[in-house]
Design a protein around this nucleic acid. Structure first.
Lengths: 230, 230
DNA sequence: CATCGTCTCCACCTTTTGGGGGAGATCTGA
DNA sequence: TCAGATCTCCCCCAAAAGGTGGAGACGATG
């Protein structure tokens, strides 16, 4: 049985969704809430598996509430509900979507979806999957493809480098100085200089700063995978 | 009426999908193909709206075929079918997914989905949306959230900088030398040095290379939006 | 009005970087 | 076996970068 909580400030809308879901044999609406604050309290009290969350609400909006819920969950971890959130809204501006996904939402669907699709979304997310409105999936894909895309042409230039040179480039893209690279690779400082020169010359770059840019643009280095604790 | 082409090297599987789809009143299967090469020919001949594409095939795999189809489309543009591809496969290793999305696919679903869901996927994609298998959507989201996520903490450090300093940092992240920055910002080279020093000191960085790393990690600079034509 | 932050610049100095050579040791493939 | 590529290291040198300290101008803020 999938335990669901519906959060929306409009009681009528809330009841509508609740009725649709409660009508399913495998879904049970265990709580409702009208504000973000209420949502957080109710989630603690009723431990739902899935939360359907509106964005525009008084007191605390749905994105904020989602972030808080999933954040405290992280800390509690083993303790309780690995509850998952589906954002359910009338609008889909990019800003909302990104903030929602960043907050940890597992779904983002528009209120105009047919009831069966909503039910399906709940089941999918309860099952560990994620569900986005088709148009949003579309944008997510194109943004993603864009980030991957440019790498291609540049990655070819990368192949002109020897293995050692690529290692050095990676170290440069890590923010290391020549001395640090020497230490990291167990070679002399002079050798590092030689490799750095080769890298710059082969890639048509002027200095290590441009090398860092190149590394990020071609995918050798990627944002999001670091502690910038230099 | 949605014109669909089914591409799969196993005739039995192909027919199965074709029958399911043809059974829908608003969908018409106009062609079938058993290899990537055939798929490209058939697509030209029959101008389908949607192509269901298997990955593992003789002669040319589905990803390659997808890339070629959508690439030539781009060139033809106004000319013909803005045809869209749904990858339909048994496996979902990340590598395939990424290559598929990069090739321009609008969907990536597994062959074990229920027939109604397949039909729904076709309609969604024909309608301009995109459809991914739930688990894939999940991974796409987490990868995306990760990229956005790290930026937060670092973006706060960014706020310690003055406007001018952020501009200078952005220029550094562009691969510019101090002299070039001076020219770009219409200030003296000495001034640039001052700003650079402030940036490094305020952010706790050692040199401009680390500054570039920082800029990418905090989202001030993002991969994919550049010509690395230094 | 005095102070603070910001932007602009200067001079002096040390360190790092990058370019130009050259050279020995391996290893691989023709 | 010999040519070529790669990795390693050296020297010298010029340019760039980075640190320190100081200074004038401007606007906001108390």
């Amino acid at each position: 049985m999938i335990r669901v909580m519906v959060v929306d400030d409009q009681a009528l809308v809330r009841r509508g969704f609740a009725l649709v879901l409660d009508n399913e044999p495998d879904i049970e609406v265990v709580a409702e809430a009208g504000t973000g604050v209420e949502a957080i309290e109710a989630a603690r009290a009723h431990q739902p598996d899935i939360i359907l969350m509106d964005i525009r609400m008084p007191e605390m909006d749905g994105l904020e509430a989602t972030a808080r819920l999933l954040q405290t969950e992280e800390k509690a971890e083993a303790n309780g509900t690995p509850c998952r959130v589906i954002i359910l809204t009338t609008f889909d501006p990019d800003e909302y979507v990104f903030r929602a996904l960043q907050a940890g939402a597992s779904g983002f669907v528009l209120k105009d979806i047919p009831p069966e699709a909503l039910v399906e979304a709940v089941r999918t997310v309860a099952d560990g999957g994620a569900m986005l409105a088709p148009g949003i999936t579309q944008r997510l894909i194109s943004q993603f493809a864009q980030k991957l895309g440019t790498g291609r042409n540049l990655a070819e230039r990368l192949e002109r480098l020897t293995t050692r040179e690529r290692e050095v480039l990676a170290a440069i893209a890590d923010g290391k100085s020549n001395a640090e690279i020497a230490e990291a690779l167990f070679i002399g400082a002079a050798t590092v200089k030689t490799h750095v020169s080769s890298v710059l010359s082969k890639l048509g770059l002027r200095d290590r700063a441009q090398a860092v840019v190149f590394a990020y643009e071609c995918g050798l280095a990627t944002a999001g995978g670091r502690d910038v604790g230099f």
